[in-house]
Design a protein around this nucleic acid. Structure first.
Lengths: 176, 176
DNA sequence: GGGCCTATGTATAATAT
DNA sequence: TATATTATACATAGGCC
């Protein structure tokens, strides 16, 4: 304790040169931390300035990471088209992503028509919801069967929501 | 000269809340600075980790700014193909749709880490769920705003569900 | 990899030019 | 709108689990 130069707990942040990190393990750590930071900055920019943005990054392991406000594909479409008409409901409807969603939604609906377990599903769902911090924890804890039933239930709810949305003539396609 | 005495100390950097800057002039300055910072961070990430990345941002005045390493379009093409040029086509067995969903899920996860807004959504959702016989009654009683928020929340949940479904390798496509 | 920690490097809010 | 300044808030390198 007497030494002024007593070794501190760690070295603190060091200045680094901006050049390729050669050591793979360090590179991974740096990528992970800085990618997070980059996305956070982008998020802040979008909120503060009320603008749209998208980021696409491939990790050293070639895994794809992306950020998008309001959505990566929407921003990319705007970029490709060279237009900024984000909220054009017609083009939003026609975006591939929404199409996919709608198609899959219709398929799911078909299946639902032949399902007779709806009531059971609802009951199971209610149980799950009532068990506490379901939003953060339940999904991960669910068994395969539970999950399946839960998904069916969500789809039913979704249909109801879409109906309501139609009634309200909501302008933006918040949901597919 | 008297500049020395005149040099009133600045307030220095102030803490700000991450929410929309209302004053247009400030918003512009903030955008300009933060956009530069964002691009610099991206550049550093690319050099340090030897990776490819692209950023697309629209300014408050709808002007397009983009960053790309090695080139915006190259990275976008990689994204659209859903594969890097260094990968073989084996990964193509996964449907593009699922990939899209997974990407969006990852996005959502990252955003959740940094955005308090989403937490608010969840809290609101929890309130709605906890108010009783929500399944049968709540939807019809919800205000337009409530409904919208609810739909956004469900949409996020849906992403999470898709991710889980993928993990479980479910045979039937109950959900997309 | 995912978190946590601390010391320190860096980004940036407010301001003025 | 970009740039310069300054004081501070925030991000992060290097460690350690």
């Amino acid at each position: 304790m007497d030494m002024v130069n007593q070794r501190k707990k760690n070295m603190g942040r060091q200045k680094i040169e901006i050049k390729k990190v050669e050591k793979d393990s360090n590179k991974l750590v740096t990528f992970s931390k800085r990618r997070q930071g980059l996305f956070r900055k982008a998020s802040e920019l979008c909120v503060l300035c009320d603008v749209h943005a998208a980021i696409i990054v491939f990790s050293p392991g070639d895994k794809l990471y992306c950020f998008g406000q309001p959505d990566t594909n929407v921003v990319l479409n705007s970029y490709i088209k060279g237009t900024t008409e984000f909220e054009d409901s017609k083009s939003a409807e026609n975006s591939p992503t929404c199409k996919d969603y709608n198609r899959q939604y219709e398929e799911a609906q078909k299946m639902l028509e032949t399902e007779k377990k709806k009531l059971e599903d609802v009951q199971n769902l209610a149980k799950i919801f009532n068990k506490g911090d379901w939003w953060n924890d339940s999904i991960d804890d669910m068994s395969s069967d539970q999950l399946e039933q839960f998904m069916v239930s969500i789809y039913e709810l979704r249909r109801k929501l879409v109906e309501r949305a139609d009634e309200l003539v909501m302008k933006q396609s918040v949901m597919p």
